[in-house]
Design a protein around this nucleic acid. Structure first.
Lengths: 136, 136
DNA sequence: CAGGATCCCATTCGATACTG
DNA sequence: CAGTATCGAATGGGATCCTG
């Protein structure tokens, strides 16, 4: 019995957490929007639909895999639409949906906040790191 | 030479990405705020300072390690203050800084958006998943 | 009670190669 | 050009034990 309690504890904790996740809209959205690349991609599409290749260039550093994967997630959540034009070769564009567009003001607000407070954050980091070094 | 290009490519890509990260305030902030637990913790402290133990209970599912680790990150970024009261046993409280407080309206906006649009997202997911299943 | 240190598993992400 | 599949490295995060 004692040998099982560890695994069980873990399983139960996960259930509690999952239940919380399921009932917490904010965490759901954060999980998508706070993703490493999602924000960048949404921002890159803010001014209109973009093509796969364009996004790859615009969002410097993203791998092809993560580009596709992130776009799929955003599409699944209804924030982005994928449009296929039957040409040769086939052309695919990604753009914001109505829902995605309503999210942009918040992202922009976050961006604005970030730009106006990044200095304070950097200072805080420096003094924090400095205090650590001095504490010896 | 050819054998080195792979590693070099990677190194260069990372440099480009790091340079971008260093110059993109939004990503810096997102990296902190979009963290798995940071948002929950900030929210838990919104109504006033809380103690370590309290936070651990309030934010269901967080491990002791991640609690401490996340608090350290938030403290380093100057969003949270750690206050030690010299009592026996020692009492430690965490609260928002002025800077942290200015971020809350945005988090609240995100929370509000999430709560009012989570239904659409869920619907989008269902229809997306449904389309996948039907596509066979 | 607060939290540092360690071990270890699960997930993430990138590089590469291949299909339509 | 757009996208899929696979493998390996890196990271995140949890359980446990231990200290002030």
């Amino acid at each position: 019995m004692a040998t099982k309690s560890a695994a069980q504890r873990r399983a139960e904790a996960k259930i509690v957490y999952d239940a919380f996740m399921a009932t917490c809209p904010t965490r759901q959205v954060m999980a998508t929007v706070g993703d490493k690349w999602a924000g960048l991609l949404l921002n890159a599409m803010a001014d209109g639909p973009r093509r796969h290749g364009q996004l790859r260039v615009t969002v410097a550093g993203i791998s092809q895999k993560m580009l596709t994967q992130t776009l799929r997630t955003l599409e699944r959540d209804g924030l982005v639409v994928r449009t296929v034009e039957a040409s040769v070769p086939v052309t695919v564009t990604y753009g914001l949906t109505e829902l995605g567009a309503t999210l942009m003001p918040i992202l922009r607000a976050l961006k604005t906040w970030s730009e106006s407070h990044i200095g304070e954050i950097m200072d805080a980091r420096d003094s924090y790191d400095g205090a650590m070094a001095t504490a010896s």
